[in-house]
Design a protein around this nucleic acid. Structure first.
Lengths: 205, 205, 205, 205
DNA sequence: AATGAATGAGATTTCATTCAT
DNA sequence: AATGAATGAAATCTCATTCAT
C-alpha cells in the first residue's frame, strides 16, 4: 500500500486501483487518463493524488499488489510443499488461477506494464525478483533431491518455465480470454517436464 | 517498404527507420519524439512525413521489416531443412542471431511494441502469424516423422517454444545485452527437447 | 451558449467569446491563434478548451449568439408591430444598431465568417434562415395588407433588402466605422421603399 | 498579368490561374494547397513560383483579371450607352452573365476573397473602386437627365444596387447555381427602380 | 479529506516556399 | 524554364497535476 494512503480510506484506495486496472485494460497505460480513472472510481480527479503520488505510482501499485499476491500464494506453497514437483505444479496453478480470475488485470500485467518508462520496468523487475528466486530454489531443490534430471542450467530452465507460463497467458488474452486458464495447468506442467523430444532422439544434433 | 517511399530515396528511408529504432530503444514509443528521430536521421522534421504517414507508421514499419526478415530467414530454413530437429535448431538460432546483432531493435521489438494502441498490436499479431504457423508445421512434421514424442498438444508446445525464446531474449536485454545471445541456442534447444523432468518420474503427480 | 459551458463560469465563457471577437477582427479567423485569444481573455490556453470544443466552435458560438440576438430583437418587433412598414423600419434599425455598437463583431460577421470551412458556412446559413423567413413574412404581410405594391417577387425583394443592409454595413466597416451606422436607417429604409426610379419612367425598357 | 510572367509561357500562366479558381472554389483560399493547384494545372510545385510571387499573388491575380474583365465590359457599355437606364440594365446583365457562366469563379469572388489577409482585402477594394465610380457616374447622369427621381443620396443608392446584385449572386451560389443567373437581370433591375413601396404610402413613417 | 476548474508545457503534423539538379 | 524533394516554422489540442475552496 502506498505510504501516502496509510492514514486514509483503504476502500477508496482500492477503488482507484481497480478502476485503474479496468481503464488501463481498455486503453493501455498511456491511453488511461487520470480523469477517467477517477470517474470510474467515483472520486474527483484531485482525490487520486491524495492516494497516489502520480500516474506512474498507480501502475506500480497495481503491479506491486498483484505480484505480491502471486508471490505470497507461492511462498506459502513452497513452505507447505517442499516436494519440488508439487511446488512447481502449484506455482503454475497459482499463476494461472490469479490471472485467470481477472482478465483485465492480466492484460495490464502482460501488455501494458512492459511499456511505460524504463524507471517503471526497473521497479517491476525488482518486484519480480523474489518470484524468480523462488522458482530457482524449486529447481535447485528438485535437482538435489533427484526428481529433476541432473545436468541443466537452472537459469535457462527458469526462463523456459516463466516464458512458457507468460506466453500461455498471452495467448489466452489475445484470443479473448474465453477458456479456463487454470485448466492449462496440467498440460503445461507436463510439457515442461517432458519437453518435446523422444528419449532416444535427444542427442542427434 | 512503405508505399509512400517507393519513388523516393531508399537510403533516407532506412536512415529514418534506424534512427527510430535507436531513439525508441532509449525512450520507448511514446517517449520517442519525431523531432528527435528526424535529427538522429539527419533530416528535417517534415521529411519524416514524406516517407511515413505518421509516427505510428514508423513503428509499424520497423516491425514489418524486422519480422519479415526473421520470417524470410526461417521460411528459407524450413524449405532447405525438412528435418524438423534441424529446422527447429535453425529457427532458434536465426531468431537469436537476428536480435543478438541489434540490441536496440530487440528492445523495441520485445518491449515497446507491446504498448501503443490496440491497432498496432493487432497488426503485429497479423505479422507474427506466419511465424507461428511455421513453428506449428515443424512440430506436426516432427510428430509425423517420429522425431518428437507422440502425444502432445501442438499449440502448447508452440507456446512453450516461443515463450522460452522470448523470455531468453528478454533476460538478455534486461541484463544489458552483454553476452552473446546466439550462444544460447544450444542449451535452449536442448532444454526444449528434454524438459526438466527425469524419464522415470514424469507421471508421479 | 455552448453545452460544455452550462455548468461552468459564464463570465469566463463570455470573456473568451469577446476576446475571440477582438482577435478575429484584427487577424481573421485563420489568423486568430487560440493562444492569443486565451491571453486576451486572461485565461490559460487549456481553459479555452473547457468552454469550447475547438477553435471552430468559438467562431460558431460568436455567430450563434449574435445572430440569435438580432433575431430575438426582430422577432419581438414582429410580434409587437404587425404593421409591416414599421416592422421593416425596426428590423433595419435593429440590425444597424446591433452591429453599429460593436464594429469588431461586425467585422467578424461580415468578413471572417464567410471564409473558413464549408461546414461553418452551412451552420451560418442554418442560423440565418429564421432571419430570412421573418423578412419574407413581413414582405408577404405588407403585400396582403396593401402597404407594399402588389406584384413583386418576395425572394427578390428579400435579397434586395438584405443585400442593401449587408452592403451598407460593409461600406461602414471598410471606411473605418467612423460614422453612426444607425443613422443610416432612415435613408436606407426610404431608398428600399422608393427605389431609384421615377414613377413615370419605370417601364421604358 | 503578373510582372514575373511577362516573358514566360502565357498558357501555363492561365492554366495555373484556372486551376487555382477550381481548387479554391472547392476548398477556399486557406484550404487550397499550392501543391494541389500545381497538380491540377499539370505543373510542378516550383513552377507556380515562376509565375506568381506567392500564394496570395495567385488569389489577387484571379481577382484582378476577373474584376478588370467585368469593368472593361461595363466601361465599354457606359461608353456605348450613355442612356443611364440602359447602362444600368447592361451593367447588371454583364455582372450576372460573367459570373453566371463560371460558378467556380463566382464562388471564389463572393466567398473566398473576403477572407484572407487585410492586405488582400485592401487590394480588392482598390480594384473595385473603378466599378463603384462607374456606378455612381451612371446614377449622377440619371439624376441630371431626369430619368431617376431627384433627391436621393448617390452613395446609398450605389450600395443598394451593388448589395442587391451581390446578394442575388450569393443566393444563386448557395442554392447550388442551378438556375440561369442572367435571367435575374430584369426582375432585379425592376425591383431596384421601383423599390417595394406604393407611391402613396411612402412618407408614412 | 475532497473537489474539480484551471493550468501550461509539450508534441504531432501541415504546407508554403526554396533550391540543387 | 522546369522540377519536386526537402525544409522548418508554426499552431492546435491534450492531459497530468495543482490549489483555492
Amino acid at each position: 500500500m502506498s505510504a501516502i494512503a496509510q492514514r486514509k480510506d483503504a476502500a477508496k484506495y482500492h477503488a482507484i486501483l481497480e478502476a485503474a486496472i479496468k481503464v488501463m485494460a481498455v486503453s493501455g497505460y498511456h491511453g488511461a487518463q487520470v480523469a477517467r480513472i477517477a470517474r470510474e472510481a467515483g472520486v474527483a480527479d484531485g482525490t487520486v493524488y491524495l492516494y497516489f503520488k502520480n500516474k506512474e505510482d498507480i501502475l506500480v501499485s497495481v503491479l506491486r499488489e498483484t505480484i505480491s499476491q502471486i508471490i505470497m500464494l507461492s511462498t506459502w506453497l513452497e513452505g507447505d510443499h517442499p516436494e519440488p514437483l508439487l511446488a512447481l505444479h502449484k506455482l503454475i496453478e497459482g499463476h494461472f488461477t490469479t490471472l485467470g480470475r481477472n482478465p483485465d488485470l492480466a492484460l495490464v500485467l502482460q501488455v501494458h506494464v512492459r511499456q511505460s518508462d524504463p524507471a517503471i520496468r526497473e521497479q517491476v523487475a525488482d518486484m519480480m525478483r523474489p518470484y524468480h528466486r523462488m522458482l530457482e530454489r524449486i529447481l535447485v531443490l528438485g535437482q538435489e533431491t533427484g526428481v529433476f534430471r541432473q545436468p541443466f542450467d537452472v537459469r535457462i530452465a527458469r526462463r523456459m518455465i516463466f516464458g512458457t507460463i507468460d506466453e500461455t497467458v498471452n495467448a489466452w488474452i489475445f484470443t479473448g480470454a474465453k477458456y479456463d486458464l487454470a485448466a492449462q495447468t496440467d498440460p503445461v506442467y507436463d510439457m515442461l517436464l517432458r519437453g518435446i523430444g523422444k528419449g532416444d532422439k535427444l542427442s542427434e544434433i
